[in-house]
Each structure stands twice: as C-alpha cells, then as structure tokens.
Amino acid sequence: MSSEPGHAHSDGDHDHQHGAEVTQSNERRIRLVFILTAGYALVQAIGGWLAGSLALIADAGHMVSDSAALLLALVAYRVARWPIDAQRTYGFHRVRVLAALANGATLLLLVAWIAWEAVQRINQPAEILAGPMLVVATIGLVVNLVGAYALWSGDSGDSNLRGALLHVVGDLLGSVGAIVAAIGIMLTGWSILDPLLSVLVAGLVIRSAWGLVSDSIRVLLQATPKGIVADEIEAGLLNLPGIAEAGHFHAWTLTDESIVATVHVSPKEGIDPLTLPSVVASFLKEGHGIDHVTVQVDPRGALLARHA
C-alpha cells in the first residue's frame, strides 16, 4: 500500500446531480394549491381589512407563509432540473435555503405587528363585521379543502408533497377557527374574540416562521444535521469489516433532503483499500440516510498519529 493518503468518492446509486426526483403530477398538484392559497391570501387580507377582522388578516399571514412554503417546494422541483457547472458543482440548491430564510424573517416581522395590534384591540375593542368575516372564512375553508384533497391524492412517497399537505391542513384549521370566531361574534357580540383568535393564528405563523429561519441558518452554517452524531458514526465504522481506523467525520445539509459527508478511514492488514469507499457509503446510506459521501483512505496509523 502506498505511503501517501488515498482519496475516493462514492455516491452509492446516485448520480452527480444531487437533485430530488421530479414527479410531474406532484408538481402540478403543488402548483395548483399554490395558486389557490396565494390567491385566497390576497382575498382574505382585503376581506379582513374591510371587515375590521384582525383574525382574518393574521390568517392571511399564515396563508402567505404557506404559499411561500409551496413556492419553495416548486423551486425544489425546478432546481432538480438545473445542471451543475464548473462554478456550482452542487447546483443551485442553496437558493431555496436563502429564500426560506428571507421568508421566515419577513413573517416574524408580521407576527410582531399582529401581536401589537391585538393588544391594542383587546384594550380598545373595535367593531367587527361578523357577516363578511364569516363569508370570507367559509370561502377559505372550501379553498383549503380542495387543496388538501389535491395533495392527499398525490404520491405519498414525495416529501415535498407531504410537507405541502401539512401546511394546507394548518390553513384549514385556521379557517375553521375564523368561522367559529365569526359565529361567536354574531351570537354574543363579543368582538374581543377576533383579536384573541388572531393571537392564536399568530402562534401558528411564528412556529412555522421560526422553523424556516432556524433550519435555514443551520444549513447555511453547515451544522451537523439533526440526528447525526459524529462520534457514534465513527464508532460504527470501526465495527465494519476491513476498517482499522476511522475519523475526521463531517456532515452537512446540502438541501433539506440531501446530506453530504466526508470521512477518513484506514484498512486492516490484507484489505484492498479500494474496497472501503463502497462499504462506508453503504453503511452511511442505509444506517443514517447520508446519500453522498467522500471517503479518504489513509495508511494505517495515520489517523492515530494525527490524534497523538
């Protein structure tokens, strides 16, 4: 065996596009739901303003956040088609991460405004036109039911589709809440129900917005993906046949569905070093969902010497 370190690269069964499989039917479903959701968000915002309903405006913000999530899902499908080039060897996947970060930060500002306005209305209740509020909320319920059915009837194995469905279900619950609040105001005259509901909806928005921001920051900082512990993986590699040493494991997220890793290993006596990359790649793929790994094969003792 050569005294110089060796370098090998393995993707398992993957090619070098690093893109998600594009399903035309699912893309059409998400595009339809995006148009419905974004269109209704505009209607809801205008209706909430005219009816004086902060709850409708807050739910419109929730719809905007979910529209953005649906748009990002569409971007993921399109990005999967873009070829890599000499300057962007991983393609354009981080564009989606940057968009998610901007989207989340904007929504946090919206939540702050909703919370401030809700406090003002609780202290000084404003007149709410419960009838128009009920009409707008009912239209939203119908739109969300149509969107949920379109996504539910698609390919359940598509993570983009599953994520979009969860967002639409959240919108559906927001519409139900707005309907209940409108009926409550009509029956009791308690206009305070509107700002109270707006705070509840704002809570849904802040949860999804903070998730977008925190996940985006983790990806941009190349933090180790959740559920992956370097020491445990290195220990697992040492249990594989043919590997004498393992170390310098690093992993980061390329997109929200693709994890990239690098690791150094050394072969045991009599083991062909060229066989190790495929063994390591299979272990990381099957046990930890890492679909792209670069393996450097070092001479025996090299890793121990570095730690000495």
Rank of each mutant, 00 (worst) to 15 (best):
residue 144 N to I: 06
residue 41 A to I: 04
residue 110 L to T: 12
residue 38 A to W: 00
residue 222 Q to K: 14
residue 100 A to W: 01
residue 256 D to Q: 11
residue 24 Q to S: 03
residue 224 T to C: 12
residue 248 H to C: 14
residue 15 D to T: 05
residue 308 A to F: 03
residue 102 A to M: 11
residue 118 A to G: 14
residue 222 Q to S: 15
residue 113 W to K: 04
residue 133 M to C: 10
residue 262 T to M: 03
residue 254 L to N: 07
residue 10 S to R: 04
residue 93 H to L: 04
residue 306 R to H: 09
residue 254 L to V: 11
residue 255 T to G: 12
residue 46 I to E: 03
residue 202 A to D: 13
residue 227 G to Y: 00
residue 293 V to W: 08
residue 57 I to M: 11
residue 171 D to N: 15
residue 229 V to P: 03
residue 106 T to W: 12
residue 204 L to R: 00
residue 202 A to V: 09
residue 223 A to K: 10
residue 55 A to I: 10
residue 95 V to G: 06
residue 22 V to H: 09
residue 39 G to I: 08
residue 268 K to T: 09
residue 75 V to C: 04
residue 147 G to A: 08
residue 17 Q to V: 05
residue 175 S to R: 09
residue 135 V to Q: 01
residue 287 G to P: 13
residue 214 S to P: 00
residue 109 L to Y: 01
residue 133 M to N: 05
residue 263 V to P: 00
residue 269 E to C: 12
residue 289 G to Q: 02
residue 114 I to H: 01
residue 210 W to L: 07
residue 221 L to G: 05
residue 124 Q to V: 11
residue 147 G to Y: 02
residue 36 L to N: 03
residue 117 E to L: 15
residue 3 S to P: 07
residue 195 P to Y: 02
residue 71 L to Q: 01
residue 258 S to F: 11
residue 284 L to V: 11
residue 208 S to H: 03
residue 69 A to F: 07
residue 258 S to N: 14
residue 242 G to P: 09
residue 119 V to M: 10
residue 251 A to V: 13
residue 178 A to R: 00
residue 280 V to Y: 04
residue 183 I to M: 14
residue 234 E to G: 09
residue 265 V to L: 02
residue 11 D to S: 06
residue 246 A to S: 15
residue 240 L to T: 06
residue 70 L to D: 01
residue 257 E to L: 14
residue 50 L to T: 05
residue 290 I to C: 11
residue 94 R to Q: 11
residue 114 I to A: 03
residue 293 V to S: 05
residue 200 L to F: 15
residue 13 D to M: 01
residue 68 A to Y: 00
residue 89 T to N: 13
residue 154 G to H: 11
residue 254 L to D: 08
residue 33 V to Q: 04
residue 263 V to Q: 07
residue 211 G to E: 06
residue 207 R to L: 15
residue 107 L to K: 03
residue 31 R to E: 01
residue 248 H to F: 14
residue 195 P to L: 02
residue 277 P to D: 03
residue 130 A to S: 15
residue 47 G to M: 04
residue 284 L to A: 10
residue 269 E to Y: 06
residue 273 P to I: 06
residue 135 V to W: 02
residue 280 V to P: 03
residue 260 V to R: 05
residue 238 L to T: 04
residue 294 T to K: 04
residue 287 G to N: 10
residue 216 S to D: 01
residue 1 M to D: 04
residue 115 A to V: 13
residue 99 A to I: 08
residue 167 H to I: 05
residue 225 P to I: 02
residue 154 G to S: 10
residue 204 L to H: 00
residue 293 V to E: 03
residue 88 R to N: 05
residue 261 A to Y: 10
residue 219 V to Q: 08
residue 86 A to I: 06
residue 217 I to H: 01
residue 183 I to S: 04
residue 273 P to Q: 05
residue 34 F to K: 02
residue 9 H to R: 12
residue 154 G to V: 08
residue 256 D to C: 07
residue 125 P to M: 10
residue 43 V to M: 14
residue 105 A to T: 14
residue 307 H to R: 14
residue 113 W to Q: 12
residue 47 G to V: 09
residue 263 V to A: 01
residue 110 L to E: 03
residue 12 G to E: 02
residue 156 S to T: 13
residue 147 G to I: 01
residue 254 L to Y: 03
residue 124 Q to K: 10
residue 6 G to M: 14
residue 68 A to M: 15
residue 21 E to P: 06
residue 105 A to E: 03
residue 175 S to W: 04
residue 40 Y to R: 07
residue 73 A to R: 00
residue 282 S to E: 12
residue 227 G to S: 07
residue 36 L to P: 06
residue 4 E to W: 07
residue 48 G to D: 00
residue 165 L to P: 08
residue 62 H to P: 08
